[in-house]
Write a protein that binds this DNA or RNA. Structure first.
Length: 264
DNA sequence: ATTGAGACCTGTCGGC
DNA sequence: TGCCGACAGGTCTCAA
């Protein structure tokens, strides 16, 4: 999409998790994608019009790329609105590629933001640090967790504390750092406010987990074999010489997987 | 102001 | 085979 123009846009229904904005298709058609970036779990495409196309995959959303060799110059090529089950949005780009958004659960969404609405976006403007950025370190995390009344697990899922961690990698990072998910988040810092050593362990573990999965992601599909604790209830803990058994508990409505033996 | 519970929606899987 | 409940990678809204 990057560097190319929307030749045609089709939506199959009026809404996903939220309604598409008014004039969604007409505001996109003819615009060129200047940049395509990510912030937390949001995808942002900046357009030549100045608007930003904001996209979220929700739980089950994904994009399919089809090369359409049948596109003719000078003829306005349309995209099918019902190409497949749960296909909700189709972008035909000037690169002769059709980008289709498929999302069975429809927890994803798309929005089109003016520069003004982008700058004042209630969620985007409150997001925490990117975990792979240099600024995300022990003191930043300890500071972000200051005053939190929740557990570490719940705090790490809060996108205002760290941006972009989800349920799987919170469990994985806490296991890697050997920290119990039930510890109070505020205890990452001393009463005086300086970060405890565990805060450094945790930030390092978060960066490791994400870096590793990003490297692996280009090849493998989803599967529990790649996780050390997530979705492994009742199985052996993969920490060296631990010998513990992975447990599952619910925190704030989400499953947490952990080893009670090596995570303290 | 912060927090947990429930809601949103469909698909899959295990048990009966 | 079919039915039913539990559960799923996220985030919003709403009461407490």
């Amino acid at each position: 999409m990057s560097g190319y123009r929307f030749v045609d846009v089709a939506v199959s229904r009026p809404d996903l998790r939220v309604p598409f904005p008014r004039r969604f298709t007409t505001r996109l058609i003819g615009q060129t994608v200047l940049t395509l970036t990510r912030r937390a779990k949001y995808l942002l495409a900046t357009l030549s019009s100045g608007d930003t196309l904001l996209m979220h995959l929700g739980m089950s959303g994904w994009f399919r790329i089809d090369v359409d060799s049948a596109v003719q110059d000078g003829r306005r090529a349309r995209v099918p609105t019902d190409a497949g089950r749960h296909d909700h949005v189709a972008f035909r780009m000037s690169s002769n590629v059709i980008v289709t958004f498929n999302d069975p659960r429809r927890f994803g969404f798309m929005d089109l933001l003016s520069p003004k609405r982008l700058a004042s976006h209630a969620v985007l403007s409150r997001l925490g640090l990117e975990p792979l950025s240099a600024e995300f370190d022990a003191s930043a995390l300890a500071k972000a967790c200051k005053g939190k009344k929740t557990s570490l697990k719940v705090a790490l899922l809060d996108q205002r504390v760290v941006a972009g961690l989800g349920n799987i990698y919170v469990s994985e990072a806490l296991h890697r750092a050997r920290l119990t998910p039930f510890r109070h988040a505020s205890t990452l810092a001393t009463p005086a406010g300086s970060p405890r050593p565990i805060a450094g362990r945790l930030t390092a573990a978060i960066k490791q987990v994400l870096t590793e999965v990003i490297e692996r992601e280009s090849r493998a599909n989803y599967g529990s074999a790649r996780f050390r604790v997530y979705d492994r209830e009742g199985q052996w803990c993969r920490t060296r010489n631990c010998g513990g058994t992975v447990r599952r508990r619910t925190q704030a409505g989400r499953s947490t997987f952990y080893c009670p033996r090596c995570q303290r």
